[in-house]
Amino acid sequence: MNDARVEKPMPLLRFLRRPALNERAPEPLTLWPWLGWVCLLLLIGFAGGALDGALIRLFGWTVPPNSFQNYLLAHASWKAAAIVVVAPLLEELGFRAMLSTALKPVFVGLAFFFTYTYVLLHLNLMHRLPAYGIAHYFDVFWVLIPACLASLLLYRYAREPVVKLFCDHGVAIFWVSCILFGAAHAAVYSNHLAWWAFILAIPQFLLGVLLASMRVRFGLRWSIATHYAIDSLVVYGVWLYLVVARDSVVQHGLMLAYLGIGAFVVVYGLVALVRVARGRW
Rank of each mutant, 00 (worst) to 15 (best):
F114H: 04
F114N: 00
T115E: 11
T115R: 05
T115F: 08
T115P: 04
Y116K: 09
Y116S: 11
Y116V: 12
Y116C: 03
T117R: 13
T117M: 09
T117Q: 09
T117P: 00
Y118M: 05
Y118A: 10
Y118C: 04
Y118S: 01
Y118W: 15
V119C: 07
V119N: 10
V119M: 11
V119A: 13
L120Y: 15
L120V: 13
L120K: 12
L120N: 15
L120S: 15
L120D: 09
L120T: 13
L121G: 15
L121W: 15
L121D: 00
H122I: 00
H122F: 15
L123M: 08
L123N: 15
L123A: 14
L123V: 14
L123R: 11
L123C: 07
N124A: 04
N124T: 10
L125G: 03
L125C: 06
L125K: 05
L125N: 02
L125E: 00
L125D: 00
L125Y: 10
M126T: 15
M126K: 14
M126R: 14
H127C: 06
H127K: 14
R128E: 12
R128K: 12
R128Q: 12
R128D: 06
R128V: 05
L129I: 10
L129H: 05
L129C: 00
P130I: 06
P130Y: 08
P130S: 06
A131H: 12
A131V: 14
Y132E: 11
Y132T: 14
Y132Q: 07
Y132F: 15
G133S: 11
G133M: 08
I134E: 12
I134R: 10
I134N: 07
I134D: 03
I134W: 01
A135Q: 09
A135V: 02
H136A: 07
H136I: 01
H136D: 07
Y137S: 06
Y137A: 08
Y137P: 01
Y137V: 02
Y137C: 04
Y137I: 00
Y137H: 08
Y137M: 06
F138W: 04
F138M: 06
D139S: 13
D139R: 13
V140G: 09
V140L: 15
V140R: 11
V140P: 01
F141D: 01
F141C: 07
F141Y: 13
W142H: 10
V143N: 05
V143T: 14
L144A: 01
L144N: 02
L144V: 03
L144H: 04
L144D: 02
